[in-house]
C-alpha cells in the first residue's frame, strides 16, 4: 500500500509537522518501504489472541492524595520561550 500526498499532508497536519512540497516525494518512497515492512503483520493469524499493551502483567499502583509539590514556577519558566506575568505566551488562541 502507498500513501498519497493527500494522506501524507493529512498526517503531517495531525502531527503538526510542516512539510515542504520538496519533501513529499522522498517521504512517499520511504513510506512505501515502511508500509511494506509493517504490512507483513496482516498475514498473521491472530484470531483469539488478546492485544498486549505491556509486557508487565501488573495492575496500576496508586498514590495517596497528598500535595507534595511546591511552587517552582520561576525555575520551570526559565526555559520557556516566552512568558509574562507568570503566563506562557502563545499566538492568539481562536475559539
Amino acid at each position: 500500500m502507498a500513501l498519497t500526498d493527500t494522506d501524507l499532508k493529512r498526517l503531517a497536519r495531525l502531527a503538526r509537522l510542516r512539510l515542504e512540497e520538496s519533501e513529499i516525494t522522498g517521504l512517499q518512497g520511504q513510506f512505501a518501504g515502511i508500509l511494506g515492512l509493517i504490512d507483513q503483520l496482516q498475514a498473521v493469524d491472530t484470531r483469539g489472541i488478546e492485544p498486549l499493551s505491556h509486557a508487565l502483567d501488573l495492575g496500576l499502583r496508586l498514590r495517596e492524595d497528598l500535595v507534595t509539590e511546591t511552587d517552582q514556577r520561576a525555575r520551570f519558566q526559565s526555559v520557556a520561550p516566552q512568558v509574562e506575568e507568570g503566563l506562557y505566551l502563545v499566538p492568539k488562541v481562536i475559539e
Binding site: Q82, E84, E85, L87, Y88, L89, V90, P91, K92, V93
Partner: peptide, 12 residues
C-alpha cells in the same frame, strides 16, 4: 487560555 490582550497573544 487567557485571551486578554498580551500584545495580541494569549496567556496560558
Amino acid at each position: 487560555s487567557l485571551h486578554e490582550d498580551f500584545h495580541g497573544l494569549s496567556g496560558i
